[in-house]
Design a protein around this nucleic acid. Structure first.
Lengths: 389, 389
DNA sequence: ACAGTAACTGCAAACGTTTGCAGAAAAAAC
DNA sequence: GTTTTTTCTGCAAACGTTTGCAGTTACTGT
């Protein structure tokens, strides 16, 4: 094998000399073709048997008597390369099982064809649906997605942002930690003008592109619905007000009450991380003594489900005595009995929009100066049995 | 700024000459320090104001009067570098806001610190839990995860494998498409000796490391449980037998029946993609005419849920008249009424194991010749109301 | 004063692509 | 037959790291 390589090199060198000074005679060409065939064969043999060396563009060039640049261009379908050459390169690639080294290409072009995505948890229904949509959309553009979860930890989030930058992702999509208030670790992306898009949990005062559900409407419509159903004492289980999500939903809740001239009663409003355990504690408080609430509006479905289960355990009839509403339209809300009224957020649309926006930004379609896009996606209240619908 | 750069270069050049021939005088050192300070300042200014150029290791070297190699070593905490130098480098990095270019480093070292993961769907509960576990484990080792979903399409899967290889991931974890029977697109990883681990949906006859739940036991125990509950006509809703999952569960089902000397009745066994729609169709067939089944064992929870809903709609009492069991212990099974008996697969353990295995393989801890590891993780039947427990 | 060792640091060559520029051959225009 | 244009290909320099090797100082012991 090694002999063949050597021969190849010297032959090709000879070739070039000839080429530049005298030109090919027909039988020289024939000889060349024959030799290349042999070469290809032996190269391929090697590639099948050993796993040591991966072939590079240069190997193809040598085997074909071309230069690396020509092979590169052929692979990228550059117009200046003849069809015949392209065909020969394709065949050699096939035979040698050549695989492009994206690392090298990315270094040279300083773009990675990868979009980064950071979410608090991958296993929440809303988020995993968004991810699906993002990935499918990106795939249309030939981009790959690198997903990381911050586990709702600020320090991990920061770490991940840096890792993403180190990998020179071409764009970053983020749903922030609930507690993130300092967004300066994203500065590197803004400064370098790398597309940065927040969705769902977005920063209030940080300049960036943002896509958010219409949480105000979600909170408003749901509360209004409960009011229309006759409820006047609507408990509210809310996430921490550090997050835009809960600020907006809370504002919606308040304004709906105001419309019906119902006073906001802080006694039946809870702010904390939204978990099953916390929701059950809230229920204990709410149903410890009269006056009992006639409805509970929880800001996620896990909490709403907990409320329904508490009610079942305590023989409180839903929806007759207590009406319940959740948020996000998790599949579980349709399965539980009674089915729970919830707010659909259209995760697939959100994901598609986020991905499309990043692609736009990369292709500079969208770039009106330093303006940042702020998109609000609609939500839809899905009325079910739990609210008496 | 440019002036300063030039000055820096020439000064440092001068420096070196001096250094190698005569050595430093004290005030030369002082001058040097002063200059470097100025340099650092101006470099930093530039980095704050403009976003054009990202600083490289070389910039730090120049600013500090060092060579790129020293800076590189300092950053990697190489033992030959003095503490003082490391400290100076750290400060300069801070000041210039230098960010490592992983692309370049990866090219040089030909490892990416990225593990690839290909799954059919990210939004299935089992899979998203596995992903979470994998990512957390990998993070302990300083590795990142690149997640892609094949949407259960073979061609997409193949495409993704190639993309992963192009990015030179250091390892690949895969849950294959339901229909994948030809696994040759994974050859590239085997040949190049890059850790390749299958989990959940694994290839039967393809040599690779495999982690699978104990699907035989899952099928066997569940069927046995239903038999013990008195059922003798147990319908079986199964996925396509191209997949190891369903082969094994089916075998378990059959053997349990055999133990109770119950004949396998093909009339009440269904093989097809497991979706809500298909399960409902099966129900229509099953309950079209007597003899009716006294139990349905569905190979995933979506189908089991569909069965329960069908029964509710048709006023068939579960579990009194019809017992139901599912597979995967999806959160929905605990919420629906009646709660559905299902098989817990311990996704977090599976994910952790998969990640740990890949890390082991990378660090060559595990490599007894050409032996492949085949791990079977235990499952656990969770008995709930739907089966009369 | 000198050899020997230890502690640092620098040189330069990689890693595998892409790409501006220039050059050769072939075709076209004069 | 010469010039111009077109079509194709090669040269060589990047991209930003890492690393074997060699070289320089400083320190140690004699």
């Amino acid at each position: 094998m090694y002999r063949w390589s050597l021969l190849a090199n010297s032959y090709i060198y000879h070739n070039n000399i000839k080429k530049y000074s005298v030109g090919f005679s027909t039988d020289l060409l024939l000889t060349k073709k024959y030799l290349n065939l042999l070469l290809l064969q032996s190269f391929a043999d090697e590639s099948n048997m050993s796993n040591r060396s991966q072939h590079t563009i240069k190997d193809i060039a040598v085997a074909l008597g071309l230069s690396a640049s020509t092979v590169s261009r052929a692979l990228n379908d550059h117009p200046h390369i003849s069809q015949e050459t392209k065909q020969r390169v394709r065949e050699a690639v096939e035979k040698l099982d050549y695989r492009r080294n994206a690392l090298a290409a990315n270094l040279r072009t300083s773009k990675s064809n990868i979009i980064g995505l950071i979410v608090p948890r991958i296993s929440m229904f809303f988020l995993s649906s968004v991810i699906t949509a993002i990935q499918n959309k990106l795939h249309e553009f030939g981009y790959n997605l690198m997903v990381c979860q911050s586990n709702d930890s600020q320090v991990l989030e920061k770490e991940l942002v840096n890792a993403m930058y180190a990998s020179r992702v071409d764009g970053l999509i983020v749903s922030a930690t609930l507690s993130t208030e300092d967004f300066s670790h994203f500065d590197i992306f803004s400064r370098r003008n790398i597309p940065l898009v927040f969705f769902d949990r977005i920063p209030r005062n940080y300049p960036a592109h943002k896509i958010q559900g219409d949480d105000y409407q979600g909170g408003y419509q749901t509360t209004l619905h409960l009011l229309e159903q006759g409820c006047r004492r609507i408990a509210f289980i809310c996430g921490p007000l550090t997050s835009n999500l809960y600020q907006d939903r809370y504002a919606g809740y308040q304004n709906a009450l105001k419309k019906y001239a119902v006073a906001v009663d802080e006694q039946i409003i809870f702010f904390h991380e939204l978990s099953k355990g916390n929701a059950l504690k809230d229920c204990d408080i709410l149903f410890a003594q009269a006056p009992y609430p006639d409805a509970v509006f929880a800001c996620n479905d896990t909490s709403a489900i907990a409320v329904v289960e508490h009610a079942k355990a305590k023989q409180i009839k839903v929806p007759e005595v207590l009406k319940v509403a959740g948020y996000s339209n998790d599949p579980r809300t349709q399965i539980i009995d009674p089915a729970i009224t919830s707010v659909e957020q259209f995760p697939l649309e959100v994901g598609t929009q986020a991905a499309a926006l990043v692609m736009d930004l990369i292709q500079q379609k969208t770039m009106p100066g330093r303006n940042f896009i702020s998109l609000t996606t609609p939500v839809d209240l899905v009325k079910r049995t739990s609210s008496g619908a």
